[in-house]
Computed example of a mutant assay.
Amino acid sequence: MITMQLPPLAAILLLLGVTDLALGFSGRAFERAKEVDEKCRNENQVEKGYFEKFIKARIDEVDPPDNYKCFIKCIMVELLSLNDHGEFNIDEELQNVPPEIMEEGHRIIKTCHDTPGKDACDKAYQVHKCYHRENPELYSLVLHYWENASQK
């Protein structure tokens, strides 16, 4: 009998019932990725190179500058999941989850939505650190597809 070892991400995707992500994710957040990413990068002077560390799921290895934390806040504000004062809107964030990963995405958001921060920018960053802790592979995959969608 021949057994095949699946890479961790492939195994997770199979467990989540996600078998065809070749085209990426869909949904309202990804429909606005290019517009939102461009606006928030420009407002916060964030270079794409720094984002790579997060795509590679190394969020716990970096201490980003405030402008990066505010970049994350800007994205969340634009997608209506956070307001300028750092108040989290769980209903809006749940609607931002791509349908391809809805069950796991909702679980992660419900776990992380109360994560505190010292200000609105730090709150956004701490929420994303929590998302990463809950499922690093999925977090990295979502960021990868966000980056791809923002380039189109």
Rank of each mutant, 00 (worst) to 15 (best):
L82T: 02
K39T: 11
A11G: 15
D63E: 15
F25Y: 02
E78I: 04
L79G: 02
E134A: 07
E61T: 13
N96K: 04
I72P: 01
K110A: 02
K69W: 01
N135C: 01
N135R: 14
C40L: 03
N44D: 01
L13C: 07
R28E: 13
N89A: 08
V127M: 12
Y139A: 07
C40M: 14
V62I: 15
T3H: 11
P8G: 06
D119W: 03
S140I: 07
E92Y: 05
A10H: 06
I55R: 01
I109A: 08
K69P: 07
P98K: 06
V62H: 05
D20I: 08
C74E: 02
L79R: 06
Y139K: 01
D60E: 12
S140K: 00
V97Q: 03
I12Y: 02
T111S: 13
R58T: 06
C121T: 05
K129F: 08
P136Y: 10
E47L: 15
H85W: 06
E31Q: 14
R41T: 12
A29L: 10
S140V: 04
M4G: 03
G24H: 04
H106A: 09
L14A: 14
D119K: 07
D20M: 05
V18A: 14
I101N: 00
P64H: 07
F51I: 04
P64I: 14
V142F: 02
P116H: 10
I72S: 02
E43L: 15
Y125I: 12
K48I: 05
A57Y: 03
L143P: 00
C130S: 12
F30V: 12
S81E: 08
N42F: 01
L143Y: 00
V127S: 00
A124P: 04
L13H: 00
D20V: 06
W146L: 15
A57F: 13
K69N: 00
H85E: 13
I2Y: 08
K48P: 01
E43I: 15
E35C: 06
F54V: 09
N67T: 13
T19Q: 11
A10E: 12
H132A: 12
V36P: 02
N89Q: 07
G105C: 07
Q151E: 05
M76I: 03
E35H: 08
G24S: 11
L82E: 05
E103L: 07
D84A: 13
N44V: 09
Q126F: 04
S26M: 06
T3G: 08
G117T: 11
S81Y: 00
L141H: 05
I12G: 06
C121Y: 07
K129I: 13
R32S: 09
L79I: 09
S81N: 12
Y131D: 10
L82D: 02
